[in-house]
Amino acid sequence: MPQDPAIHDPVVHALVSRLRRLPPSCGPVRLVGVDGHAGSGKSTFAGRVAAALGGAPVLHLDDLACHHDLFGWTGRLRAQVIEPLARGTTAHYAPYDWRARRYGPPRPLPVAPVVLVEGVGVGRRAVRPSLACLLWMDLPPEESWARGRARDGAEQREFWDGWVAAERAHFAADPSRPHAHALVRQSEQGYEVLPGPSAPSGAGPSSP
């Protein structure tokens, strides 16, 4: 079975080494947020980092959002995930079924040295105190949304029209990028991790 290329990606490997050295932020867990505009590649990058960590747990915020409340997941994230992890116990969250439009049976999210949470707005002010590190996928919004629309096809056109307006409103009121410790950029050559606006003074390239 072929190995995930992220395991041998020097940029991802360097980032992972730094994440492991961070102090815990949520009980025994280093909670790492991967934020960015919809379509910017958050899920893919979070998956690569998780693989390089040896299979770290990943929570997708799409599982906590829902059709009628796209950005109203803070209470669910806190009660179902952050509070249990802060106690050092396995979290259980109810994933939303976007086709059936209802929440399903709970899934476990185990305690681990690093747990990744990826999704638009994970760097919001209500969540930041629980994060050890905030990564921002640094792709402009229009380019991100175009990628997302192409990925989801014509059947999701109406959803995307509503989503773009909701995302604009969210980031206007509660921006994440200014608080990112690192900016993640992707090109044909691979990933690049640069110091973000909230990186410690003097942080060099690839330092979260």
Rank of each mutant, 00 (worst) to 15 (best):
M1K: 11
M1G: 15
Q3S: 14
A6T: 01
D9S: 03
P10Y: 13
V11R: 04
V12W: 04
V12F: 08
A14Q: 12
R18H: 03
R21M: 10
R21F: 01
R30H: 12
R30A: 11
L31Q: 05
V32Y: 04
G41K: 03
S43M: 00
T44S: 09
F45K: 10
A46D: 10
A46P: 10
G47L: 07
R48G: 14
A51C: 06
L53G: 09
G55W: 07
A56W: 03
H60P: 08
C66M: 05
H68E: 14
G72E: 13
G72Y: 14
G75L: 05
G75D: 15
R76D: 07
R78V: 01
Q80K: 09
L85C: 11
L85N: 09
A86N: 14
T89V: 15
T89A: 10
H92G: 00
Y93G: 04
Y96N: 03
R99A: 03
P105D: 11
P105N: 08
P106D: 06
P106G: 05
P110W: 11
A112R: 08
P113L: 08
G121M: 04
G123P: 01
V127I: 15
P129Q: 12
L131W: 13
L135Q: 12
A146G: 10
R147P: 00
R147L: 04
R149F: 03
R151C: 11
D152S: 01
Q156Y: 14
E158N: 06
D161G: 13
A165P: 01
A166P: 08
R168S: 00
A169M: 02
F171M: 10
F171V: 15
A173S: 14
P175N: 00
S176R: 01
R177S: 10
R177W: 09
A182R: 06
E188I: 12
G190N: 04
Y191E: 02
L194W: 12
L194P: 00
P197E: 13
A199Q: 05
S201N: 06
G202N: 09
G202K: 09
P205Y: 09
S206D: 12
S206A: 15
S207L: 03
P208E: 01
P208H: 11
